[in-house]
Computed example of a mutant assay.
Amino acid sequence: MLAMDRSTQHPGRSFDELVDEAAAAPVDGWDFSWLAGRATEQRPSWGYQRLLGERLAAAGAALDVQTGGGEVLAGAGAANFPRTLVATEGWAPNAARATRLLHPLGAVLVAVPEDAPLPFADGAFDLVTSRHPARVDFPEIARVLAPGGTYFAQHVGGRTNVELSAFFLGPFPVPTDREHEVEAARARAAGLEVVGCRNERLRLEFSDVGAVVWFLRKVVWTVPGFSVGQYRERLRELHELIGRAGPFTSTMSRTLFEARKPAAR
């Protein structure tokens, strides 16, 4: 997501300048390059995009669910694309961006709300993939997978960015539905065999308050309903905290998830 450059606070820029710039910057797509030099993310050890390319190269028909702006799928390499490759996305700005990026590479984009059933026939794909889906509907994934087919994904794990959320929201009950053990149980309940469920906890650092504003506008589930106007005083406190103590650190969770639909008897 974010570049692993050394982040440094932007010296000489006021709170208002940093916040107003971030509030006006575009947040469509799933490209985080705006944060280069302003935030760092520790990467998972497995290299999802490379592994995705390997899975795609071995597939005959593949579906990428909640593809965002299509950047991750495109980055897996068009040379690896199977003869049939479809991607879904529910947010209109992302869907438009993904269409422009993926159509020239031979992939079809279908606009589908993330909470809607997948508009595909039973057993239509031998591979279903997703990177950071907001919602994982295992029964629908199992339905569209062909017998013997594979679901391969990188999920945002449980307790991701709890520190950042709590800074703005205060103490709150942390949901457990994204814990990797819970997701594995849900996959099994949908009839899938869990092949791998590997979780890592990783560091995320923000070096200026503008980076936080931009991130919260893009990753909207971190602080639901976030707006600069509503949280301006709390943002000012964060700006002062970063000035005194250095980058604000939060903890992410990532899960490399693989499950298989049993072969037909």
Rank of each mutant, 00 (worst) to 15 (best):
E163H: 06
E233H: 07
G12F: 01
G53K: 13
M1K: 13
A79P: 04
V156E: 06
A264E: 12
V174W: 02
L51S: 07
D115G: 09
P171R: 13
E183F: 04
L73F: 05
P119H: 10
A211P: 05
D64M: 08
W214M: 13
T176Y: 01
A62E: 14
I242C: 09
T67N: 10
A134Q: 03
E179M: 14
A79N: 10
L216C: 09
D31R: 05
V65S: 07
F215Y: 15
S14V: 08
A78C: 13
A95H: 01
P104H: 14
V212K: 13
G60L: 15
T88H: 01
G70R: 01
L118N: 06
F248D: 03
P147H: 04
L56H: 00
A36R: 14
T8A: 14
R188L: 11
T99N: 11
L204W: 06
G69C: 08
E240H: 09
C197A: 15
G157R: 00
V220F: 07
T222L: 00
L56T: 11
Q230F: 08
V144S: 03
T255P: 03
T150Q: 04
V112S: 01
F167C: 09
A111H: 14
L105Q: 08
D16N: 10
L202E: 07
K261G: 08
V220Q: 07
T176M: 07
S250A: 15
D31M: 03
A187F: 07
E183K: 01
Q230C: 11
V110R: 08
N80P: 00
Q49N: 05
P247D: 11
Y231C: 05
L238H: 03
E21A: 15
L145R: 11
V194R: 12
L105D: 02
A24H: 06
E237A: 13
R236N: 06
H10S: 12
G70F: 00
S250C: 13
A111I: 10
G75R: 15
G123R: 04
V219K: 07
G196T: 14
K218D: 05
A74R: 03
V213I: 07
S253C: 12
R135L: 14
V108T: 15
A187D: 02
A263W: 02
F81N: 03
A211S: 04
L63P: 02
A121C: 12
P11Y: 04
L101W: 09
D31H: 01
A3K: 04
